[in-house]
Simulated scan of single mutants.
Amino acid sequence: MASSIHEMLRANCKCDDVAKCVLGLKNLDLLAYKKLFEQGPMTAEELGDLLQRERSTAYRSLQNLIAVGLVYRETRSIQIGGYYYEYVAISPQQFKQMLKHNITDWYNKMNKLLDDFEKELFDFFPE
């Protein structure tokens, strides 16, 4: 993956690269999202088995995905008492809209910063 915007513009980027860059995700996080969406709701343990990783590793990816809004968890009751969590992925359409929204917000923020570019540049280099 490209490490700067300049590199990304020159590179042959894929959608995964954009998602990782914009949301700060790792390869495993995106793989976990894809598996959750394809297979439907599941526990961290089930996802870990599917990814061939420890439950704790799957759980960390789920926490990353929850933090950026790609996954949410639902509480399920156990008949004999207690509960467990199932994790659910949002739709790819919602994911796409989230990326577009984040990119638009970033673009607007960068444009606002650039409006004051000369002032800030020369404030940075005092005479």
Rank of each mutant, 00 (worst) to 15 (best):
H101Y: 12
Y87W: 08
R73G: 05
Q93R: 15
A89Q: 01
T104Y: 08
T75Q: 09
I103Q: 04
Q93W: 10
N102S: 14
T75R: 13
T104W: 04
T104Q: 14
Y85D: 05
D105F: 07
S77F: 01
Y85S: 03
A89I: 03
L99C: 13
M98G: 02
T75D: 06
K96D: 09
E74M: 11
R76C: 12
I90F: 06
Q79M: 06
I103Y: 02
I103W: 02
Y87E: 02
Y83Q: 15
F95A: 08
T75A: 06
I103P: 06
K96A: 12
G82Q: 09
D105V: 11
G81T: 07
N102V: 02
Q79W: 11
G81Q: 09
Y85K: 05
Y84A: 03
N102P: 07
S77H: 07
V88Q: 04
D105A: 11
Q94S: 14
T75C: 06
E74Q: 10
I103C: 12
M98L: 15
E74H: 04
Y72K: 06
F95N: 01
P92D: 07
S91H: 07
S91N: 10
M98S: 06
A89D: 04
F95S: 08
Y83G: 03
A89C: 04
E86A: 00
Y85A: 03
R73D: 12
S77V: 00
K100N: 13
E74R: 09
K100R: 13
E74K: 09
D105S: 11
G82V: 10
S91G: 13
E74G: 00
I90W: 05
Q79R: 11
Q93D: 15
I90E: 08
K96I: 05
R76Y: 01
E86G: 01
I103L: 12
I103A: 08
I90R: 03
S77Y: 04
T75N: 03
E86T: 08
Q97K: 14
H101N: 13
E86N: 09
H101L: 07
H101T: 15
Q97A: 15
K96E: 13
Y72E: 06
Y72T: 05
S91F: 07
I78K: 09
T104L: 12
K96F: 11
Y72I: 01
G82D: 13
R76T: 03
I103N: 06
K100M: 11
Y84F: 15
Y87C: 00
A89L: 03
L99M: 12
E86K: 10
Q97C: 13
I78Q: 06
Q94L: 05
I90H: 07
V88H: 06
T104C: 07
S91V: 04
S91I: 09
S91C: 03
S77E: 08
G82N: 13
K100V: 11
Q79P: 08
Q97N: 13
Q94P: 00
A89Y: 00
Q79L: 13
Q97P: 00
K100Y: 13
I90L: 10
K96R: 11
I90S: 03
R76K: 13
V71G: 02
I103T: 10
F95D: 05
T75M: 09
Q94C: 06
